[in-house]
Amino acid sequence: NITNLCPFDEVFNATRFASVYAWNRKRISNCVADYSVLYNFAPFFAFKCYGVSPTKLNDLCFTNVYADSFVIRGNEVSQIAPGQTGNIADYNYKLPDDFTGCVIAWNSNKLDSKVGGNYNYLYRLFRKSNLKPFERDISTEIYQAGNKPCNGVAGFNCYFPLRSYGFRPTYGVGHQPYRVVVLSFELLHAPATVCGPKKST
């Protein structure tokens, strides 16, 4: 009989979020998941679920829940969905086509923008091939755009693969920082350890 609540607040209220190319993952297990707390949290810009209804989450049990978190621009949030393409979905964070879970995003301009620009948040701009679902690539190898080998030196046709967002408070909404948490639900042939409040007695 599990009684402790799942530590969703640790994920959602973290002081610093990860850059999207180096997205953070927390495994959540052996706890009671009260999703209504999240669902009623006012400032969400997006709360979209795939393969599961957000209002039914509290009735369900899962083997594991993974909480992935990172920061992207407002106009990139739409790429955090199954079957998407674009710089983020291709080179930074890719969801599987059969994704079961929820994508939760909110504007973090007050936290993550600075006058003069916040350059701490990076994304991958160049990559030889697209990421596989949930693949994480933190390499900083110089990207070779031409035929000539770069030998690890940036220059003509040789690019550092990461780019900084440089968030400023005055940017338009599409270019403002958004914090994103992706909850993915794993249902294995194993005992369920993460259940909603109704199922955990």
Rank of each mutant, 00 (worst) to 15 (best):
R163A: 13
N157G: 14
F185N: 02
D112M: 00
A22S: 11
T63R: 11
F167I: 04
S184C: 10
Y93A: 01
D9F: 11
K199S: 15
P169W: 03
F134S: 08
Y50Q: 03
F126C: 13
S139K: 09
A14E: 07
G117D: 10
N109W: 06
Q84M: 13
K148W: 10
Q176C: 02
Y178P: 01
R168E: 15
I72T: 04
A42P: 06
E10G: 06
I88H: 01
G196V: 10
R25Q: 02
A145E: 13
N75K: 11
D137R: 00
S113N: 09
K114C: 09
V194Y: 10
S78W: 06
E76G: 01
K114D: 13
I28P: 02
G51F: 01
A105F: 06
A89L: 02
N157T: 09
F134A: 08
V194K: 11
L60S: 09
G172C: 06
I138T: 14
F17N: 06
N58C: 06
P96E: 01
P43Y: 08
K114R: 13
K128G: 11
K198G: 15
R16T: 15
T100H: 09
G86D: 02
Y91F: 12
G83Y: 08
S184M: 07
I88M: 02
S36W: 04
F156L: 13
T63P: 06
P133I: 02
L57W: 08
P149E: 14
P197C: 15
G83M: 09
P7C: 09
G116W: 07
Y123I: 03
A145V: 13
Y93W: 01
L60W: 05
Y171W: 12
V52S: 02
Y21G: 04
Q144F: 05
L5A: 13
D137Y: 00
K128I: 07
V173F: 10
D98A: 08
C158F: 04
N109T: 10
N151F: 10
N118T: 10
S113I: 04
R168W: 08
D112G: 01
P82M: 00
P133N: 05
V77E: 04
D137S: 02
G101V: 00
L125G: 15
G152P: 08
K132M: 10
L38A: 05
T15N: 06
S184A: 08
V65R: 04
L60M: 15
S108Y: 02
D97Q: 09
D59V: 04
N120G: 12
P82N: 01
R27G: 05
F44T: 09
V11F: 05
N157H: 11
D59K: 10
N92S: 03
E10H: 06
F185H: 00
I142D: 07
K48H: 08
H189R: 13
D137G: 01
T170S: 12
E10A: 10
V173G: 09
G116C: 05
V20P: 08
S78H: 10
R127V: 02
P7I: 07
R16S: 13
N30Y: 05
N120A: 12
S113P: 03
R16V: 13
K199W: 14
V103L: 02
L125S: 15
Y159V: 12
R168P: 04
S184N: 10
C102I: 05
P197N: 14
C195M: 10
N109Q: 10
K94W: 00
Y143R: 07
A154P: 14
V37D: 09
G172I: 12
A18T: 06
L95C: 01
Y50M: 02
L60H: 08
S139C: 07
A67E: 01
K132T: 09
A46K: 15
S129W: 07
Y50A: 01
S184Y: 09
I2M: 13
Y35Q: 06
A33N: 05
S184L: 07
